[in-house]
Design a protein around this nucleic acid. Structure first.
Length: 300
DNA sequence: ATACCGACCTGTCAGC
DNA sequence: TGCTGACAGGTCGGTA
């Protein structure tokens, strides 16, 4: 569900709200599907960790953590109930000053329906909540995911993914990704090993703006067409970030607010509706198992 | 090496 | 009202 602009919006919100905060303790639902790290390891890394930064890598959210001697801290830290949250204890010695402080990462992929929310602890716990991290500031970070396609993991090494960031890559490298690929350009755009962060909505929308049919073989695009695609993709992603992402059904940012880019979609979700340029009905076909929308008149 | 296809899950909505 | 099937922002692993 959330693609690059939605994840970027969430990350920007989190940066405003949780940088410098400390995860005091962790609750996990017990559903193991979303966990790529064992629950004990999740707790060992996250409890007591200070959030030093939040970044996006493709569709992944990465929290950069500073952890102390976590095992010691977990044992020493007094356990408090949710009811006593108002009486915040004085914080531990800042972890950053510990000679044993090390870096770790909390990595989240939202899948199709994942949400990451920061809010007050007395907010009702939504159905399908799989993680609650109580923060030193008194708020909670929660992960909610009905379909459980999302993934949660912790890592003590730097997190790596393949694929280029669509907003950072230059045109020459971009066009090189598609050279000699016989796959439909739509499939290539969705391939996270080539570009990371583009999903179904923004693949369709960038192709529409570039005037290219989704079934075109990637290798068949001329240099001029690749240039149009490159510029359309960057434009669409930047405009979508500015609009706070697309809320097609349920997407909300870390404050629970929807995005507004769905009102600027030209083809996605508009099957049968008139093309905004020529009036022809928008077509929907299935490519690589995904709905693909295009104007049969404007896209060649 | 590359490319489709079903599987993984739950929820919603249209149609009967 | 209720059942059924199609569909949903994503990614895997198996198979062709």
């Amino acid at each position: 569900m959330p693609e690059l602009p939605e994840v970027e919006t969430i990350v920007r919100g989190l940066r405003q709200s949780v940088i410098g905060d400390v995860i005091e303790d962790l609750w996990l639902s017990g559903r193991t599907q979303p966990l790529k790290s064992p629950p004990e390891e999740m707790a060992a890394v996250l409890e007591g960790a200070r959030i030093a930064g939040v970044r996006r890598m493709g569709k992944h959210i990465v929290f950069d953590l500073v952890i102390g001697r976590s095992a010691d801290r977990v044992i020493e830290r007094p356990r408090r109930t949710k009811q006593s949250k108002a009486s915040l204890r004085s914080p531990d010695v800042p972890i950053t000053r510990s000679p044993h402080a090390v870096g770790a990462h909390f990595i989240i992929h939202l899948g199709m329906t994942g949400r990451l929310l920061v809010g007050p602890p007395d907010a009702p716990v939504a159905k399908h909540t799989h993680l609650i991290a109580r923060l030193q500031s008194g708020r909670e970070l929660r992960f909610v995911d009905p379909r459980m396609f999302g993934k949660l993991a912790v890592a003590r090494e730097p997190f790596e993914t393949s694929g280029a960031e669509p907003l950072d890559i230059g045109f020459e490298l971009f066009s090189g990704l598609f050279r000699r690929r016989k796959t439909p350009i739509k499939s290539a755009l969705l391939n996270q090993k080539l570009l990371r962060g583009v999903g179904n909505i923004y693949a369709d929308e960038s192709l529409a703006r570039a005037g290219l049919r989704p079934r075109r073989r990637a290798a068949s695009l001329t240099r001029a067409e690749l240039r149009r695609l490159y510029e359309s993709l960057q434009q669409v992603l930047n405009e979508a970030i500015a609009a706070g992402g697309s809320s097609v059904s349920n997407y909300v940012d870390s404050d629970g607010e929807p995005g507004f880019f769905q009102f600027q979609h030209r083809v996605y979700g508009r099957e049968g509706e008139p093309c905004l340029t020529c009036g022809a009905p928008i077509k929907r076909v299935v490519i690589a198992g995904r709905s693909s929308h295009y104007c049969p008149n404007c896209q060649k």
